[in-house]
Design a protein around this nucleic acid. Structure first.
Lengths: 224, 224
DNA sequence: CGGAACGTTGACATATATCAAAGGGAGTGG
DNA sequence: CCACTCCCTTTGATATATGTCAACGTTCCG
């Protein structure tokens, strides 16, 4: 169980002895696909680290629309901030696949934090990174249209996976409806945006494979 | 100069001796109304604390629209996160009035942080609070319409200032065009939303004074 | 074979942005 | 004290992007 910790940003660079201290704060939880891990406004008694699987963190409106804030993959933590600000979860979490997650007890973790300034610094870095991403999301939601967001997403994924080459092919790792929600829209609109870029010969879509035909134009549309 | 620090959340609860250490990391800067403190993408060599005046932190699109992320008032800090994540400012800052701000040098502050775990914890709390607010902004931008956001803003301001009473009167502290940008829209739309609530006899607008006629209905619209 | 997700497409409704114009208040100078 | 200007705000007409609703095709899987 402790092995997972080493792969996380939060605990990277720590020795075994230091990590052992956490054993008492952590419990393992298995969740089925579709299972809710917590709802918005639940009391935040823990934060989480994904060991296996995939978890979405999202906001839902009363009318059914949802906005995904992030997808947490193995090694990534989520809901860290909730423990400090308000003590209630600001969003909901649901397993996208059968998953294993580590639950880190709030009170025990806080105790450990006081004795380990280095972890505090790591946590600060992690929170700053989250702020950075949310900043970007706010910018996209309020200042750009959906085709621009899609273009930016594609460019970003290409970079993340080091896909260059002549006409690289990108495999979408999420269902299109999930991507739509990440971009702040609904499946229909997402589909139309893909179709629009296709018609302009900038990409070529075949199911969940996207061939990038004109990287430069895509970059231009992404506005960056 | 040090006296200002005591009023900030970041340094609250600290003794004089501990604060003196910061003297070397801080410099005072006076800025005129309208002056730019930093632009998005500038290198983040410091973070800031407002001593006097008012500063807006905002994102601007190439087409001229802007989204205000926050308004920093005296005692409040801004751009703390930029130092840890990426090292460049994710937004721009401009003085809304003639202002005095404290600039906290990045490298010196980091050194101090390592020797003062308590400040690290305060910083974690502060970053978590920012995350909380940004979360709320994302929710509003992607899931609610502007009248809902306006209602929520009004409710929030009433609480902040402890205005209850029968038909409390709220004085807007910013120009309406600034409020519009905070809510993620433009002055025209903001104006129409105010007019809509007026026509429904929920509020009464007289310049920058807003009388709350029907608190319950306002609460209902705010969706909370 | 049949059904359930998912994705796509079309027709339509709606919220918000854009553009243009006019009103109003505060400050300034004559 | 008046006239003038500047800036903010409001209002109207219009355009556009996106959401909504419904229908259909596909794939996958029991």
């Amino acid at each position: 169980m402790i092995q997972i910790l080493k792969k996380t940003k939060l605990f990277s660079g720590f020795e075994q002895s230091s990590l052992d201290e956490f054993e008492t704060a952590i419990s393992l939880k298995k969740v089925k696909k579709g299972e809710i891990i917590f709802y918005e406004k639940d009391i935040a008694g823990a934060f989480y680290i994904v060991s296996q699987g995939k978890v979405k963190i999202y906001k839902a409106s009363s009318e059914g629309k949802e906005q995904i804030l992030m997808i947490a993959n193995p090694g990534e933590s989520f809901a860290e901030a909730a423990m400090f600000a308000g003590g209630i979860f600001p969003a909901s979490a649901q397993a996208l696949t059968d998953s294993e997650i580590l639950c880190v007890n709030r009170d025990r973790f806080l105790g450990i934090l006081e004795r380990n300034p280095k972890i505090a610094i790591n946590l600060i870095a992690r929170l700053s990174e989250l702020l950075h991403k949310l900043n970007r999301l706010v910018e996209e939601l309020s200042l750009t249209d959906i085709t621009t967001r899609l273009a930016y997403y594609l460019i970003n994924e290409l970079e993340k996976r080091n896909l260059s080459g002549d006409q690289p092919i990108l495999e979408l790792t999420e269902k299109k409806s999930v991507l739509a929600s990440q971009l702040g829209t609904i499946p229909e609109t997402f589909s139309r945006s893909l179709a629009k870029l296709s018609k302009e010969k900038i990409i070529e879509v075949d199911g969940s494979s996207i061939k990038i035909l004109d990287y430069n134009k895509l970059l231009e549309i992404s506005g960056d």
